[in-house]
Simulated scan of single mutants.
Amino acid sequence: MVSTIQNTDVKQKDADRAVVVAVTSRAVFEPGPDDGDDVYGEGVAFPLLQALQKVNGRLLEANPAESLLFDVVLITTDSQQQQQSSRIISSTRHYGLEVSRFCFSSEEDFIESLQNNNVQLFLTTNGNEAPQASQGGVLSALLDRQIAFCPSEQLRVMFCGDAVIRPDAGPTPLSRRAAQSFSAQLGEMQQRIGVFGSPLSVVLVTSRGGRDSCGEALRTLRSRGVSVDEAYCLAGAPRGPILSLLRPHFLLSDGFSCLED
């Protein structure tokens, strides 16, 4: 069963133009004891939501009528947290997070909740949910609880160049198209924001191959309108050290990914 609550405190985004990002509530808020406190603590994805709001704010500064904005949906599949739905909503209000909708579903039905909300990017800390969503055609990324908190002033998106130049490696044709569509939307946002002091940063990392592979990935992203701020050719070296240094909010690779290896 899927239940969706619209947040009347937040102006709803244009359903035809907004980029819908779904994040699990347990990634945004740290679960704690039911001690009577109405507010959850900040989770690993908390700075991500703040960074998404920074991008929206800059887009609206440039054009108050802008419709190409991030639209955040909070997904809750944890039965214990569902029993405390009012606490999730009050925590969102307390921190000033611009969440448009709260979606509560069982673990079996969460793919349906993503599809019903036209989600274009799903972010979770659950290692089972990310690949399931990707198989269902939703672009997904696995958030890493082990890395230090990412900055909240700038949204940092990292692309795996190997997936960019080998789109056939994605789990399903739907997820591959979703990845291409999402990157094009990011590129459009970049063009509207401009380069100076941008709250949106795109990083490219190629794990395999040499400079030619990196160059091919750069050209592919540019063909989608994406401007790459930094590019790293690892040539077989592990990604872990560079990820720890750059601290991207999420890594997009083959339809679903994690910030490991």
Rank of each mutant, 00 (worst) to 15 (best):
residue 82 Q to R: 15
residue 82 Q to L: 02
residue 84 Q to Y: 09
residue 85 S to Q: 12
residue 86 S to L: 13
residue 86 S to G: 15
residue 86 S to T: 15
residue 87 R to D: 11
residue 87 R to G: 09
residue 88 I to L: 15
residue 88 I to V: 13
residue 92 T to R: 00
residue 92 T to D: 00
residue 93 R to W: 01
residue 93 R to N: 08
residue 94 H to M: 07
residue 94 H to K: 11
residue 95 Y to L: 06
residue 98 E to N: 12
residue 102 F to K: 05
residue 102 F to A: 03
residue 102 F to N: 05
residue 105 S to G: 10
residue 105 S to W: 08
residue 106 S to F: 07
residue 107 E to I: 10
residue 109 D to Q: 13
residue 109 D to C: 06
residue 110 F to Y: 13
residue 111 I to R: 08
residue 111 I to P: 02
residue 112 E to P: 03
residue 115 Q to C: 02
residue 117 N to L: 07
residue 119 V to K: 02
residue 121 L to Y: 02
residue 122 F to Y: 14
residue 123 L to D: 10
residue 125 T to M: 08
residue 125 T to I: 11
residue 126 N to C: 12
residue 127 G to N: 07
residue 127 G to S: 14
residue 127 G to H: 09
residue 128 N to P: 04
residue 129 E to K: 14
residue 129 E to T: 11
residue 130 A to P: 01
residue 131 P to T: 06
residue 133 A to K: 05
residue 133 A to H: 05
residue 135 Q to T: 06
residue 135 Q to C: 11
residue 138 V to D: 05
residue 138 V to Q: 04
residue 138 V to K: 11
residue 139 L to C: 10
residue 142 L to T: 03
residue 146 Q to H: 14
residue 146 Q to N: 14
residue 148 A to W: 07
residue 148 A to P: 03
residue 151 P to M: 03
residue 151 P to L: 07
residue 151 P to V: 12
residue 151 P to N: 09
residue 152 S to Y: 03
residue 152 S to R: 05
residue 153 E to W: 07
residue 156 R to N: 10
residue 156 R to D: 04
residue 156 R to L: 13
residue 157 V to K: 01
residue 158 M to W: 03
residue 158 M to R: 01
residue 159 F to R: 00
residue 161 G to V: 14
residue 161 G to F: 04
residue 163 A to R: 02
residue 165 I to M: 08
residue 166 R to Q: 14
residue 169 A to S: 15
residue 170 G to D: 12
residue 173 P to D: 00
residue 173 P to H: 02
residue 175 S to Q: 14
residue 177 R to A: 14
residue 179 A to Q: 09
residue 180 Q to V: 10
residue 182 F to N: 00
residue 185 Q to V: 05
residue 187 G to E: 00
residue 188 E to R: 14
residue 189 M to N: 05
residue 189 M to I: 10
residue 189 M to L: 05
residue 191 Q to P: 02
residue 193 I to E: 08
residue 193 I to K: 04
residue 193 I to P: 03
residue 194 G to V: 01
residue 195 V to E: 15
residue 195 V to P: 07
residue 197 G to C: 03
residue 199 P to I: 09
residue 200 L to I: 00
residue 201 S to T: 14
residue 202 V to Q: 01
residue 203 V to D: 11
residue 204 L to C: 08
residue 204 L to Y: 04
residue 205 V to Q: 05
residue 205 V to S: 04
residue 207 S to E: 10
residue 209 G to I: 14
residue 210 G to T: 13
residue 213 S to C: 10
residue 214 C to K: 10
residue 214 C to I: 04
residue 214 C to S: 07
residue 215 G to M: 02
residue 215 G to C: 07
residue 215 G to T: 03
residue 216 E to I: 06
residue 218 L to I: 00
residue 219 R to Q: 13
residue 219 R to F: 09
residue 220 T to E: 08
residue 222 R to I: 04
residue 223 S to K: 06
residue 223 S to F: 02
residue 225 G to F: 02
residue 225 G to L: 01
residue 227 S to Y: 11
